[in-house]
Amino acid sequence: MAPPTEGTYKLNTDASVKINSGRGKVSGIFRYHRGDWVIGYTKVFTHVDVYQAELLAILEGLKIAITHHLTSLEINSDSATVISMITSDYPRYSNTVAECRYLMRELGTPTLRYTCREQNSVADVMERSTSVDNAPFDQLHILRVTLLYVAQAMVADKHGVAFPRRIAIVNIVNNVNTSPTLSNSVGGSTDTLQTSCINAT
């Protein structure tokens, strides 16, 4: 994926949910077009599903963009389903979707793109860095400096490092007509397909 144009900020978001508790963690990182850290954030929610969490990750990022006047913006998410919810009519999560659309209009309608998980590695590392079990919920944590545990992912991202990934073939078959995103854990065939994406800022 090509980097954003000069003078543009890039927001990468990610989210995960513990099915048994319904606690979800969202995270995001703003970077300048050269890949430099601008600001990051994390937040834990209760009683959400994975699509709600992915939407909330984008929503929290949009709020931060408004607050910090990051108006020249490109947004990347690894959930094609959630991008479709925002860009087309969708009955579920209507309040959150409407708020996302409103804030995007306030920001001058930033570009919203799908990116595969390998290209979203920095936000993914941030999201996986701490457990939702021990984190206070509904508190936004602003991260103003580069975190040590994401520094390696940022360096790889700047240099376009490819990361191979193995995906169960049954996951692709089961999801192709039902959801544009691949499930994190789906039982089935042990046959695998190795894939890779090139990271770009």
Rank of each mutant, 00 (worst) to 15 (best):
L56I: 07
S79Q: 08
A135P: 00
S84T: 10
Y93F: 15
V48H: 11
L107Y: 10
P91Y: 11
A151G: 01
G24W: 05
V26I: 15
V26Y: 01
S16W: 08
N76K: 13
S79D: 12
M104W: 01
V38M: 13
D14F: 03
N120V: 01
G40S: 15
I86L: 06
Y32Q: 11
V50R: 10
G35M: 06
P110Q: 03
L107M: 02
F45Q: 13
S16N: 11
N95D: 15
V125N: 01
G24A: 13
E74H: 07
D14W: 02
D138T: 06
H47W: 06
I66P: 04
E118G: 14
G108M: 07
H68I: 04
S72G: 10
G22K: 06
H47V: 07
V48L: 06
T109P: 03
A123P: 03
C100K: 06
A156T: 02
I75T: 05
Y51F: 14
L11D: 02
C116D: 03
V82L: 08
E118F: 00
G108F: 09
A80M: 14
L143Q: 09
N120L: 06
L107T: 03
D78P: 09
T109Y: 12
I83A: 03
M85V: 02
G22S: 12
L143Y: 08
L11V: 02
Q119V: 11
A135Q: 15
D157F: 02
D124G: 04
Y51H: 13
L62P: 04
F30A: 00
V145G: 07
M126H: 02
E74Q: 11
A57D: 05
V155N: 07
T115F: 04
C116L: 11
L107W: 09
A80D: 12
M104N: 04
E106K: 11
S77V: 14
L140C: 10
V155I: 15
T71I: 05
D49W: 10
D36Y: 00
H69F: 11
D14R: 05
L103S: 03
T87D: 13
D36Q: 01
I142K: 10
L73T: 00
L62R: 06
T96C: 15
G40E: 08
L70R: 08
I64M: 05
L73H: 00
R31C: 14
M126T: 01
I66Q: 10
Q139S: 07
T146D: 11
S79N: 13
L55S: 07
I19R: 13
R92H: 14
S79Y: 02
K43L: 14
D36P: 00
V150H: 01
S88P: 00
G24V: 06
T81G: 01
V44A: 07
W37Y: 02
E74Y: 07
V97W: 01
G40Q: 02
V26W: 03
S131D: 15
L11I: 14
T71G: 11
S94R: 14
G24H: 04
V145Q: 13
E99S: 10
T67C: 14
A15V: 12
N76G: 08
E60V: 07
L112E: 06
H68R: 09
T42N: 12
T109H: 09
A135Y: 13
